[in-house]
């Protein structure tokens, strides 16, 4: 999580990224290794003993592994960006392939934060948008209170 409160001018921006301890090349390496071992075993049994029925199971397993790693890869670059831009609170969420952008009027936006930091959301016009999904509880609490502070300050300055 990287939050910036840029001076008294109250430009607030926060980006939270997913934690990936495995790089994309690491992923490829692991997949290549497991693929080579599993298919090697299955092919050896097929060629040497004629036990070809191991092959489809190894193939199915590799497919599951591929899908799993593909899923991880697609979400590796997921991030959440929350920024105060003029009148609005802009939220940008990248989830897998697509990026969604929301803009809430900061005067209507409300911060909903569970006491234990298990959940953080923004509410506006009766709809809730969950945020902080890449954060841990403490980070959510911190972001929640920062957002509340920012929103309050805006209100006060208007009032």
């Amino acid at each position: 999580m990287k939050c910036v409160t840029a001076g008294e001018a109250a430009r607030f921006a926060c980006t939270a990224r997913r934690n990936n301890s495995l790089s994309s090349s690491g992923r490829l390496l692991v997949f290549g290794f497991v693929f080579a071992v599993c298919m090697g075993i299955a092919l050896a049994f097929t060629v040497l003993l004629g036990a070809w029925m191991i092959l489809p199971f190894a193939g199915a397993e590799m497919l599951v592994l591929y899908l799993a790693f593909h899923h991880v890869g697609r979400h590796a670059a997921d991030y959440e960006r929350i920024a105060m831009e003029g009148d609005s609170l802009a939220i940008e969420v990248r989830d897998g392939g697509h990026v969604r952008r929301f803009s809430l009027n900061r005067q209507w936006a409300q911060v909903v934060c569970a006491g234990d930091g298990s959940r953080l959301a923004l509410r506006s016009h009766g709809r809730e948008l969950e945020i902080g999904i890449h954060m841990n509880g403490e980070q959510r609490l911190a972001l929640g209170s920062a957002l509340k502070r920012e929103l309050k300050r805006e209100l006060r300055s208007i009032g």
């Binding site: 599993c38 029925m53 191991i54 199971f57």
Partner: peptide, 17 residues
Amino acid sequence: AYLLIAVMPVLAGAVTM
């Protein structure tokens, strides 16, 4: 977990045969 991934298809193949 690596071991499991390596050998489970072998068991599945064996019992299928």
